[in-house]
């Protein structure tokens, strides 16, 4: 298998380069991450993040043949060769395929990703009807891999101000939660020309989400919620 992998080490002072690798997959290798781990065994200078290896932790998000995705969910069968692997676009590179996600998580933190409810808690848990719980489907599954936000041109243009699809999907997850009582404050925060309205409905986010979620739909729902509120 022929791969070209982005290499950059800030310590050696050299500019970034693409390094060629040729490696034979073993019979048990199914996903791209298996190949990267094999490369790591022969070239331990290659850096990338990975943890769960099954699409839950979101650590191994990278740009694979021009498209963001999780290496652990990308089958090696059918991949166009050479497989060109780059770090997630739009975020500063720490080293090789490892990017600095500080900004991404700052946006996530800014939308207050937790239930806000100052009412006295009931004796047991705050219950939801099956219908109320269904509203969270397609939202709570987000693993914050950043595939969507870093594939969004609006995020590339205004990474410091536009919250990005991942944070906005998470924002909607709490807006639509029947147990949350801070909808008005959340909407006030989002009604901003940069935070929400930089979204141009390009829909790259929905196209690349490795979990099959639709941040663009969530963004549309937030806009509708703002519209209904203003009426």
């Amino acid at each position: 298998m022929h791969l070209q992998i982005y290499r950059y080490c800030p310590d050696n002072g050299l500019p970034p380069r693409m390094q060629e690798y040729r490696i034979e997959p073993e019979p048990g290798d199914r996903k791209l991450l298996d190949i990267l781990i094999r490369i790591k065994a022969v070239d331990d200078s290659l850096s990338f993040r990975r943890s769960c290896r099954e699409g839950i932790c979101g650590s191994d998000a990278m740009n694979i043949n021009g498209r963001n995705g999780l290496a652990c969910l990308t089958p090696i069968e059918g991949l166009h060769e050479p497989v060109v692997i780059r770090p997630l676009p739009g975020l500063p590179v720490v080293r090789d395929l490892v990017v600095d996600m500080t900004l991404f998580f700052a946006h996530y933190s800014a939308i207050k990703p937790y239930l806000i409810n100052t009412e006295p808690p009931p004796e047991r848990e705050r219950l939801q009807t099956p219908e109320q719980r269904e509203c969270l489907d397609g939202l709570y599954e987000c693993i914050l891999c950043a595939c969507c936000s870093t594939f969004c041109p609006s995020f590339w243009w205004n990474p410091d101000k536009f919250l990005g699809p991942a944070a906005l999907l998470q924002a909607y997850r709490f807006i639509v939660d029947s147990r949350d009582r801070a909808t008005a404050e959340r909407l006030d925060y989002l009604d901003d020309v940069y935070r929400l309205y930089r979204c141009r409905t390009i829909m790259n986010c929905t196209e690349v989400c490795p979990k099959g979620l639709s941040p663009s739909h969530a963004i549309e729902q937030i806009r509708q919620a703002l519209l209904v509120r203003s009426l």
Partner: peptide, 10 residues
């Protein structure tokens, strides 16, 4: 000057 929803709706 740089409103969000108002400009979007307009």
């Amino acid at each position: 000057l740089f409103s969000g929803q108002r400009a979007w709706l307009l």
